[in-house]
C-alpha cells in the first residue's frame, strides 16, 4: 500500500462520478453502506480503484481512507491497478471442474495471449481470471464476461470463439444480455 501515490491535489473522480455516488446516500441510514456501491461506480469508470479514489470516496462518505481500503481489499472484485477493457472469468468450481473447467482456464489464457489467470493481454483489451462458482452451472464448463454475457458449455474450440466474441462485440450497459 503506497503511502501517497500522488502529491497532486487535482481530484481523480469527476463531478459526475461523485454525483452518482451521492445519489446512493439516501438509500441507507448510514453513509458507510455506500462503500460498495461507490467502489462499483469508480470501478466501472476507471477499471480499477486506485488509492487516490479510495481517499476521495472516504471524503464523500465521511470515512477514513483505511476504512474504504479495508472493505475493498476483502472482496475479490476490485483491482487497485487497471485491468483490461473487458474481463472474463472462467469458473473452476465443482460442476465446471468435473467437465474440464480447470484445463479450459489454461486454454483460455493461451487463446487470449495472457500470461496466466489475473493477467491482461498486451493490448490492454482483455483480462482473464478464474472464479469460484459463477452460478451459471447450467452452462458448465462456463465463463462470464463482465458485461453480463454467459458462455458455455465450453470446450477447447469454443473457448477460442468466446475470446473472439468478447473482443469483437460490446454489450451496452443498459442492455440485458439474456
Amino acid at each position: 500500500m503506497p503511502a501517497a501515490e500522488s502529491p497532486s491535489s487535482a481530484p481523480l473522480l469527476s463531478e459526475s462520478i461523485r454525483e452518482k455516488i451521492r445519489a446512493y446516500i439516501p438509500r441507507y441510514p448510514d453513509k458507510r453502506a455506500v462503500t460498495l456501491p461507490a467502489l462499483h461506480i469508480v470501478h466501472e469508470h476507471l477499471r480499477c480503484v486506485p488509492y487516490k479514489a479510495m481517499e476521495e470516496i472516504a471524503e464523500i462518505l465521511d470515512l477514513q481512507p483505511s476504512d474504504v481500503h479495508d472493505t475493498m481489499s476483502f472482496y475479490g472484485f476490485f483491482p487497485q491497478a487497471p485491468i483490461g477493457e473487458k474481463r472474463v472469468w472462467i469458473c473452476r468450481s465443482i460442476s465446471c471442474m468435473l467437465r474440464g473447467g480447470d484445463e479450459l482456464l489454461g486454454v483460455a489464457c493461451k487463446a487470449a495471449g495472457v500470461a496466466g489467470p489475473g493477467s491482461t493481454s498486451a493490448d490492454g483489451e482483455l483480462t482473464i481470471e478464474f472464479a469460484e462458482c459463477l452460478g451459471i452451472c447450467d452452462h458448465a464448463p462456463a465463463a462470464l464476461c463482465d458485461d453480463g454475457r454467459i458462455y458455455g458449455p465450453l470446450d477447447e474450440q469454443t473457448v477460442a470463439e468466446m475470446i473472439q466474441d468478447v473482443r469483437s462485440r460490446t454489450v451496452p450497459p443498459d442492455e440485458i444480455p439474456l
Binding site: T35, L36, A131
Partner: peptide, 29 residues
C-alpha cells in the same frame, strides 16, 4: 416500501446472514 438492489463483490461468506449484513453496511463480510 422501497426496495434497493445492493451489489456484492465476490465473496462466498456474504451468503451467511450476518456476513451479508456486515457487507451491506460497507464493511468486510
Amino acid at each position: 416500501l422501497e426496495i434497493y438492489v445492493h451489489r456484492g463483490a465476490g465473496a462466498y461468506i456474504c451468503g451467511e446472514e450476518t456476513g451479508l449484513i456486515e457487507s451491506l453496511e460497507g464493511k468486510r463480510g
